[in-house]
Design a protein around this nucleic acid. Structure first.
Lengths: 228, 228
DNA sequence: TGAATAGTGTCTATTAGACATTATAAG
DNA sequence: CTTATAATGTCTAATAGACACTATTCA
């Protein structure tokens, strides 16, 4: 049983340790709205899926476990957001929670998943605990990622048209983008497949795939900055 | 004594909980070099100041306590970086560590503080544990902050010339900036005091203070992007 | 043919970066 | 005067954003 003294000579006994939890804001694009996956809370407010860290487990594995159990989700990539450490944040006791972000295409979520829409960077509905703040951080992180790379969360399939990509970006950033400027901004991050989209009513659009090349810093600034 | 079950019915007993620590990368500008504050390690490698989280304590308060004790430092602002959670990262047992970043002017550090210079975003010397990675994150965070605001850590005094500010930015970013372009980039974040610097050998420079206005996104891109 | 959508060319205002010029000090 | 540094003006190439035009499909 581990027991030692820290550099001040204070004995660190086991019963003084906090519980460590993880909570995950899973963002998705539902139609033309950004939304966050929630689970029913104990009261009226929904909450983010989460769990306690098991002995020897890594945080991302705990987050993975929580999503597998509560949402039937597998192979999700996580990003750490922030450790929420208010000693009074959980009525059950001293629980630190590491907030995580993930982004998953709608069709990989269960059809009956509970989704709360995002409006102006926040969940439209009040969530349990400090989960509202977690959602805000997750949205900000998603936007930063989308400003730097083309659809890194793969909300779209392997190939897509510039129009589909622009609609996606308008959903993620909650604003519109001019079509010609947008095209020039993202073109560096795209690779033309040669194939054409089969649509009706107009000239067929070129199908692109992600090239993996980061978007130029000018594009990053244009996306991340507010409409104007 | 706290004890409850998580959502899977698994009993969470205290002895299954990790110890939680904080480590802080305190960055400073020492002459014309960026450097990180370290303390002697148990072996040959130095390490970042850190401590274990005390019961009911907040992470930033633990970080504050560690710096007050080990470096006589007070009133330091912290930013969370990342939770390091490899179960094997600490030979003493299961210790999660929340890495923090801080930036403190050299003259607020003890004269005999141990400083390891930063070179190309990393400590020039190998540090204990995973503290090298923490330093890299801290440097990246500092640069992001400096790209967005004028000297937010106040390495310079209340007033300064554009030349002093440029020298500071060259130190923080480890690259040079053209003097006229730099001036135009930062001018939005400055307020002219009307006073002049008293120097010898040339036209006196105007003294500015921070205006608090964020730098334009074009400037952010110019700073954050690599030399070119 | 017209309607609809995709892709590109052009124009203008802005601006980064390079360079030159003027301004103000000391010796 | 010369020398040194600060501040600003000018020029050029790049480009964001607006707008228009051309291209390719379907009805």
């Amino acid at each position: 049983m581990a027991r030692w003294r820290d550099e001040h000579g204070k004995a660190l006994t086991d019963y003084e340790r906090p519980s460590v939890a993880v909570d995950t804001a899973v963002l998705t694009v539902d139609g033309d709205r950004l939304a966050v996956l929630v689970v029913p809370g104990r009261g009226t407010r929904p909450m983010l899926p989460g769990t306690f860290l098991h002995p020897g487990e890594r945080l991302r594995d705990a987050a993975r476990r929580a999503l597998a159990g509560k949402a039937g989700l597998h192979d999700v990539a996580f990003a750490q957001l922030e450790m929420f450490d208010d000693p009074k944040r959980d009525h059950r006791g001293w629980v630190l929670s590491m907030a995580h972000a993930a982004a998953v295409p709608r069709d990989r979520l269960p059809a009956d998943a509970l989704l709360v829409p995002i409006f102006e960077g926040s969940a439209r509905e009040r969530l349990e605990y400090d989960h509202d703040a977690m959602v805000r951080l997750a949205v900000a992180k998603l936007r930063r990622q989308y400003a730097e790379h083309v659809d890194p969360a793969r909300f779209l399939g392997e190939t897509f048209t510039v129009l589909e990509l622009r609609r996606l970006y308008e959903t993620v950033f909650g604003r519109t983008f001019p079509k010609d400027t947008f095209r020039r901004h993202v073109l560096d991050g795209l690779e033309n497949t040669g194939a054409m989209s089969v649509v009706g009513g107009g000239r067929p659009a070129e199908l692109f795939r992600r090239s993996g090349v980061p978007l130029p810093s000018a594009a990053v600034a244009a996306f991340d900055h507010n409409p104007g």
